[in-house]
Design a protein around this nucleic acid. Structure first.
Lengths: 229, 229
DNA sequence: GCGCTTGTTGAGCAAGCGCTCAGCGGCAGG
DNA sequence: CCTGCCGCTGAGCGCTTGCTCAACAAGCGC
């Protein structure tokens, strides 16, 4: 370990560290956390690994965050926020028809940057912590509400032009499930699943929904006719 | 810690351990592993926790398995096998029509014992280990092949009666994704999602598939007309 | 009843974990 | 230029981890 030579207070070539505002430092630590989770999965959730990734000492993490679980919760919030921002960007483009907005949103959801195995690792870590960590659960609940709200908005704008009325809330949940399932499949088996076909399946599902081809989601009338198929 | 009293070789009330064949012991350790993963998630994957659950000493695990990752891979295989057995039970019941077999299979897939958060934890652990562990990846590949094969069989038996022909392999993958997505949704948000509606969504999707309402999966003719929606 | 095979034990090791805190030193304000 | 605040460092604490291996003892075959 090379210590600074015998000139005790002289100017030195490179400062041993630099200072930053709490805001900037916290964001940098969150970014480092996401990088570690992407690369190492669960084993990336370590004070030493994250601090090395951020280029700071291990102690700094507990200076800015009460514990590492809070840092991970902040990382979850950050990732979810960026996802939601991307959703809203597509959901509000006024130059497109509602159908086109949904299509664009599908394309964005299955773009290579979303199918990346690193992103998958992040979600695995987040999900597995929800059961034991109240902070994580709070972020999770909040996030999911917003997430489904945007999907509801996108589907709701489709409703007027559709030949069949559907139950909006259930349809949004179901579409979310379909998308998550396709995303999961693509993430667990990278390369075996083409993004284009995932988009196609979502578009087709929405078409079927609008055409009334999914009776379980049709509004009113039949409550729940559970005829055997 | 109560040691055995001063009669060194006398008969004692209870033996300190009992012996078992390698086969029996391995199965017991696998069961203990699944129990720990269910209860504690990632933190359950520990030599000490699993051995305590199995009622044996920590050292025994490395006597029967070269490392704990091998034991977890064996647990993955066991869980996947039992799932597959259950699938085949439904897939081969000769007293039912193909459509009914699929319906039963949907019902079994969303039964309370599958939606259990413990089962979800197991899968999270398995998935997160796939990326870094060759043994896990091997089990994963093998398992998924069998899994999709059964789905293909179930859908294939539907084909003759369907009014539209569909591409079997892609349809099986897509149906698997839909089911996994619904299962995921139900597992991540326990209680917010009713099993009955998941079954209904799957049945509806299959109906749409058979009626040709999912053009992206129709066989032959149009290769990939990517018209904008 | 006795000996032997061998399944089982558990202390021990090195490595890594989250977190603490005394003190170093970057850098702004005087 | 020099002072002092405070962001930052990193050795160190107590703990858990996976795994090893010498010693122990269950229970079969005699």
């Amino acid at each position: 370990m090379v210590r600074r030579p015998e000139t005790p207070r002289s100017r030195q070539a490179t400062p041993r560290f630099h200072r930053a505002s709490a805001q900037v430092r916290r964001e940098a630590l969150v970014e480092a956390t996401l990088a570690c989770l992407r690369r190492y999965g669960h084993e990336g959730m370590s004070v030493r690994r994250i601090s090395r990734q951020a280029g700071v000492s291990a102690g700094l993490i507990n200076h800015h965050f009460p514990s590492i679980t809070t840092l991970v919760a902040a990382a979850y919030q950050t990732l979810a926020d960026s996802l939601l921002r991307s959703m809203r960007r597509h959901a509000q483009d006024p130059d497109l028809t509602p159908r086109q907005r949904l299509h664009r949103y599908f394309e964005a959801s299955f773009a290579p940057d979303q199918i990346d195995p690193g992103v998958f690792h992040c979600w695995l870590v987040f999900w597995s912590r929800i059961a034991h960590d109240d902070e994580m659960r709070a972020v999770h609940e909040r996030t999911y509400g917003d997430y489904r709200a945007v999907l509801e908005q996108l589907l709701g704008e489709l409703q007027p032009a559709a030949s069949a009325h559907f139950r909006l809330r259930e349809a949004a949940t179901a579409l979310g499930a379909l998308m998550d399932g396709l995303w999961l499949e693509a993430s667990v088996f990278p390369g075996r699943f083409k993004a284009a076909s995932a988009v196609r399946l979502c578009d087709d599902w929405v078409s079927a929904l609008c055409d009334g081809a999914l009776p379980g989601l049709r509004a009113s009338a039949q409550r729940l006719q559970r005829e055997r198929p």
